[in-house]
Every structure is written in C-alpha cells, then in structure tokens.
Amino acid sequence: MASTTTHDTATARAAARREKARRAPAKWLLAPAVIFLLVWMIVPLAMTGYYSFRNYNLMMPSITGWAGWTNYKILWSDPTFWSALGITLLIVMICLAVTVGLGLALALLFHRNFVGRGVARTLAVAPFFVMPVVTGLIWKNMLFHPAYGLLAWLFRTLGLEPIDWLAQFPLTSIVTMISWEWTPFAMLVLLTGLQSLPEDQLEAVRLDGANKWHEFRHIVIPHLGQVLYVVVMLESIFFLTSFAEIYTTTSGGPGTATTNLPYYIFQGTFVQYDIGVSSAAAIGAVILANIFAIFLIRFVAGNLNAGEAR
C-alpha cells in the first residue's frame, strides 16, 4: 500500500517535471518582451522614483545624499508646478474637444460621396504624418510669424495689423497646432466607425419617421460610442505628453504661459539641472497619467464588454 503511494507521487513528480520542461520554451520566447519592458519602462521609472528622494542637483555637486520628502515639498510650494499642471489639463481638454468635434464633422463629410473624395481624404489626413517638431516649425515660421507668416500676410491684405500669435495668444497657438496635427487621427478612426454602421438600422430609423438629426442622435452617435472612447483615450495620453510643439515654438513662454508638465520637467532637468526636483515632478506626471488611464481604461473595457455581448 505504502509503496504504491510513493510510486504514485513519484510518477506525479515526473509528470510535473515533464510539464515544466514542455513549458520552458514559452518562458524563453516571452523573455525579450519582458526584458524590453523592464529596460524601457520599469528601470527608468524606478530610477526616477529613486532620484526624487535624493539631493541631486548638477549645479551643486557637493550636496548629495538622502533628501526624504524635500523635493516633493519644494514642488508642492512651487506655483510654476501648479500652473504647469493646470496648463497640461487645459491643453488636454481643449485639444480633445477640438479634435473630436472637428474630426467627427470631417468624418461625416468624408463619409458622403462626392467627386474627388479620395484626394480630399488623403489631404485631410496629411497633417497626421507630419512630425511634431516639423509641425511646430511650420506653424512658427510659415503661418504664425508676424513678418513672414501666411496669417500676417492675410491680415495685411485685409488692412489689419498682423498679430504675433505666439507672443499674444501663446496657449491658443499651441492648442491650434496640436489640434491640427491630431484632428486627422480622430477623423480616420471615426470614419471607419461610420463605415461599419449597418445600413438597415438607418433605413429602419427613417421608416420610423426620424429626420437627419434623430438619425445622428439615436443611431450614429451610439454606434460611434466605442470608437469615440478609443479616440479620447489615445489622444489624452498623447496630449498629456505634448512637448515638441512647445519646445520648438514658445519654449514654454512667454513667462510660463505655455509651460506644461513635460516642459516643466525638461526645464528643471536641463536648464536648472535639478534632477531631484524634476524627478519628483516626473512622478507627479506619472500619477496624473495613471489617473487618466484608470478612468479611460475602465470606460473602454466596460464598453468593449458591452460590445462583445452585441
């Protein structure tokens, strides 16, 4: 009796070993992705966390060592940090409203059939393929420039005083550039959403006596719900980290009028060389991004589940 039991456990152990051996390649095949994630995400994040608790200012190399919460306290009492936080949120909100609104309007337009639609659609998508740095330079030198810019020429032609957009309306200018770049993305995603709308639902709603507005309100918008969430999630993440457009045009100015969180962190690190405080700000940015992500992912996940049941 006892011998059979030991025999059983032995075979069970052997089976477990075989199972382990069978699964071993999976581990190795997963390794590159895991290592990539570690090196590119976890390590920098951990280092940033570590630096945020250190005295680490390149201008004061003699002061080193553990700083405790000092960096965070400095950040807390820095009005520029709070204004940067506000500006970040402002950029995200306004750009989201503009890109989704305009993107939806354009998607509805391009969903209709008209002569030259293919060319027009390609042109409308073009801004999305322009790199952020190039976007900044194009707008700064070719459009916004008070002397050489297209807008200045337009104003002069109409007999008006040209406006120095980046100096007088800095945040509006930044929002305009980012929206110009991202409206095509919203348009593309929403257009694919529109194209997947079943025709018979529209026919049914027409026979039910709906007019164009009812069609849009009761059929098109609910159908676009899921894609709208995807657009909002992806765009918020990108808008939170807007940097190149600001760096190449206003450099966060005038004053701190266009300093958002990423630019604030950049300045702290590469202008003031205070790596400790900047790391603390970066941790703040991570927390902010996570707050967004948690809400949005929940939203999207809920919607995807609802979509599966459909």
């Binding site: 018979d200 639902q201 026979l207 709906a210 159908h223 459909r310």
Partner: peptide, 18 residues
C-alpha cells in the same frame, strides 16, 4: 420614407442596439 405610412421588418432585424 417618413412621409409614407409604412412599417418594415428587416432580414437582419435592424433593432437599435443601444
């Protein structure tokens, strides 16, 4: 369609999913 007093039942039901 809305001006005709007609109701239709579709092959793929065409119910409003939301």
């Amino acid at each position: 369609p809305r001006e005709r007093n007609i109701a239709m039942v579709f092959q793929f039901y065409a119910l409003y999913p939301n």
